[in-house]
Nucleic acid binder design. Structure first.
Length: 112
DNA sequence: GAGGTGACTGCGA
DNA sequence: CTCGCAGCCACCT
């Protein structure tokens, strides 16, 4: 297919993240085949919020499960608030048991 | 057309 | 263990 923009692909993957789960920028980038562009994923998220794309960006965190982009939300605690609302535990801006709730698109979606 | 930026990641000291 | 540096690539000004 013809990906209009890198953002579009990122949005598609983020939308597929199931409730109560979270993934990392690198995982999404890797799934898109642009693992080297892990920063672009975060960049896309930033744009997604600004453009009201409705993307659950709060389910996307860095490799350590740290809410690195919480400050980019409308309010600093909104990201954490949403994650806790999904049954996750956040301490010091970091997702607890992140390894357990981690949702890897390269595995869950499987590139077949 | 060129330069600067960034919600990252991995490796080294 | 904690802190710092370099690489990476698409988007924005």
């Amino acid at each position: 297919m013809q990906p209009s923009t890198f953002y579009q692909d990122v949005y598609e993957v983020v939308k597929l993240i199931p409730f109560g789960r979270a993934t990392s920028y690198g995982a999404i980038a890797a799934y898109l085949g642009t693992k080297g562009s892990s920063r672009l994923v975060g960049y896309a998220m930033n744009n997604s919020i600004k453009t009201e794309t409705g993307i659950p960006a709060h389910r996307v965190v860095n490799r350590n499960g740290l809410l690195t982009g919480k400050f980019h939300f409308g309010t600093a605690n909104e990201m954490q608030q949403r994650l806790e609302n999904e049954g996750l535990t956040i301490i010091d801006n970091q997702i607890q048991n992140f390894k357990t709730i981690f949702w890897d698109p390269t595995i869950e979606l499987d590139i077949s």
